[in-house]
Design a protein around this nucleic acid. Structure first.
Length: 576
RNA sequence: GCGGGGCUAGUCUAGCCUGGUCUAGGACGCCGGCCUCCCAAGCCGGUUACCCGGGUUCAAAUCCCGGGCCCCGCACCA
């Protein structure tokens, strides 16, 4: 049994998570989080919020999972989130149409339409690679889940394959609500769906999963990240696309600042978020040696991305697995939504000082034009209103006239004025940086990194602030009133917001073992000394050390401990 | 989607090749009780299973067919 199997077994047995719909045989690519798993996942999401929302001064929204077709037409997912598929008419096998053409001809067909691929197949008489049978029509398989909105089938909708589109579609409202300031970070945690052809590997590839994304909107003329200086000395481990092209797999270790200055990372915001990403994963207990950033090759990148670095984690069974993507989406999405919605999604930015610019203005002289051009006059006037004044001026200077459609326009037809204009700012489409995390993969990575074995017993060494259950309360034995005292302590802690459990079944050692296995950081034991002096022992999950402390100090000490203000040894008097 | 391997209680597994002795065995867990002054101790009792459907046969966990799911390889993973 490898560690993956051991973890899967533990997760099922103790109620973290399991494959969904088991009583009906199950469906691949779906999991259900049980009592402990749901809590753990919430904790990871909450931690992400701390790093990527609260500390950044960003804001979170929640937008629908189902979206109308037009959103994905605009976003490009309808066209790009697909694979072209061709079926052999003889053996009925299905193939990636583009791969077949590439193999048979060596042509690069990426970006061609299904029709174009089909034509190539016909023209070159490409046959089924398995049975040499004739190939049929090239169809596209879209990886989005399709549905109808309401009762009319023409009202098509899709489940979102990323949360990002919600942020783009609602950008204007959020921007206004946040009083029109850039940079603006909009975050969202939510379910997304992808109709994977063949999902595998448990939590690593699901059809329905949780994504945690930030879209940071910035001024394209000022791509600098003001917060990079706070973290610029932090080291990153990079495998750039250029290194990958040379088969260089040993990561380059550079500071965030260096990575930007030497051009490995195309923008400061990217580098900044990669450092925050490192901090976040480290806070989940994922060691830095098991993390790296790998740049996507041009053909791997999504249609909207200018540069993408995947944040990868090393897992024993699966090797390096992507848990986050850091993409520079430029103005792609907002631009596309502007085109499709016809709504202006540009932002206006005031200059510090209004600028006075000199503007050359062409004023057509109607009377003269009418006299000279007669019926053509209105056409000429229209032209002159739209013409670039410089072009006209240059033509006058060099030729003495400007020729348009067989008409000679001479300086006497117009009045050219130089006007002073006050410009208070400019309009532009913001550019977007996107860190995007797969929550479920992080749940697994967190579990794998915290899984340990001590004296043949499993200990889940979850960071204390991730543990689904914070403390366990035990009576040392089930007599002499100890259970009642323990229950009182348990109730008190629950009342005060500590997630506590009570267990009096089996020997004390067995109960410690049960608690260790699900990662409860602290066990409180009520023993024979407790009725005498109102003290209890606290036992540390990772070291099995014990300290003794008064019951009335318990709550505050635990709160300090879980906030990270105190370590276990500082909680009380060590018992050896 | 293709090829290979697999599926027996909460978990891990014996049995399958060679059909009947399987009313399906074990270990651990879990629940209740006893015991117990600190690390899966002991004792008593309880709990739970042949992935689903069809076929062959007097008889199927076992053989055959179809499906589901899991694992591995290929493919796929915007």
């Amino acid at each position: 049994m490898d560690i993956y199997e051991k973890i899967v077994e533990l997760l099922k047995r103790r109620g973290f998570l399991w494959p969904s719909f088991e009583i009906y045989g199950g469906v691949r690519g779906f999991v259900t989080y049980g009592p402990l798993g749901a809590e753990l996942k919430h904790r990871i999401e909450e931690k992400w919020r701390e790093w990527f929302v609260y500390k950044q001064g960003f804001v979170e929204i929640e937008s629908p999972v189902i979206m109308p077709e037009v959103v994905f037409k605009a976003s490009g997912h309808l066209d790009h989130f697909t694979d072209p598929i061709v079926e052999c008419l003889n053996c009925k096998r299905k193939f990636r149409a583009d791969h077949i053409v590439e193999e048979a001809t060596g042509m690069v067909v990426e970006g061609l339409s299904p029709k174009e691929i089909e034509e190539i197949i016909k023209k070159k008489n490409i046959r089924c690679p398995e049975c040499k049978g004739q190939l049929g029509q090239v169809n596209v398989f879209n990886l989005m889940f399709k549905t109808t909105i309401g009762p009319y089938s023409e009202n098509r909708g899709y489940a979102r394959p990323e949360a990002a589109q919600g942020m783009f579609v609602e950008f204007k409202r959020v921007f206004t609500a946040m009083r029109e300031k850039l940079p603006l970070g909009i975050a969202q945690i939510g379910k997304v769906l992808r109709n994977e052809i063949s999902p595998r590997k448990g939590l690593i590839r699901l059809r329905e999963f949780t994504i945690m994304e930030v879209e940071v909107f910035v001024d394209p003329e000022d791509l600098s990240c003001p917060k990079l200086s706070e973290v610029e000395d932090e080291e990153l481990r990079l495998i750039t696309a250029e290194m990958r092209a040379r088969n260089e797999e040993k990561p380059l270790v550079v500071t965030a600042r260096e990575a930007v200055e030497k051009g490995y990372i195309s923008a400061e915001w990217q580098a900044y978020f990669m450092v925050i990403s490192k901090y976040f994963l480290s806070s989940l207990g994922i060691p830095w040696e098991r993390q790296r950033f790998k740049e996507q090759m041009p053909w791997e990148k999504a249609h909207y991305s200018k540069q993408t670095f995947d944040h990868e984690v090393y897992l024993e069974r699966f090797g390096w697995v992507e848990v986050a993507g850091h993409a520079y989406r430029t103005d792609y999405d907002l631009k596309r939504h502007m085109e499709h919605s016809k709504v202006d999604l540009t932002v206006f930015k005031r200059y510090k000082e209004p600028r006075i610019v000199e503007k050359v203005v062409v004023k057509p002289l109607g009377d003269v034009i009418k006299t000279d051009f007669g019926d053509n006059a209105s056409k000429i006037i229209k032209l002159l209103k739209n013409i670039d004044p410089r072009e006209l001026k240059n033509s006058f200077e060099s030729e003495g006239y400007y020729e348009f459609d067989g008409n000679r326009i001479e300086p006497r037809h117009v009045k050219i004025e130089v006007k002073k204009e006050k410009i208070t700012g400019r309009r532009f489409i913001p550019h977007v940086f996107e860190p995007s995390f797969g929550a479920d993969r992080l749940v697994y990575a967190t579990l794998e990194c915290s899984y340990s074995v001590k004296e043949n017993r499993v200990i889940l060494k979850l960071p204390r602030d991730l543990a689904p259950i914070q403390v366990a309360v035990f009576p040392l034995v089930n007599k002499n009133g100890l259970p009642n005292i323990a229950r009182d302590i348990w109730n008190m802690l629950k009342e005060e917001g500590i997630r506590a459990t009570y267990d009096d079944s089996g020997s004390i050692g067995r109960r410690y073992a049960r608690a260790d296995e699900i990662g409860i950081p602290i066990a409180i034991t009520v023993d024979y000394q407790t009725p005498k002096d109102s003290t209890v022992t606290l036992r540390d999950r990772d070291t099995w050390k014990q300290v003794r402390m008064p019951v009335d100090k318990l709550l505050n000490s635990l709160l300090d401990y879980f906030k990270g203000k105190k370590n276990f040894n500082e909680l009380g008097i060590c018992q050896e």
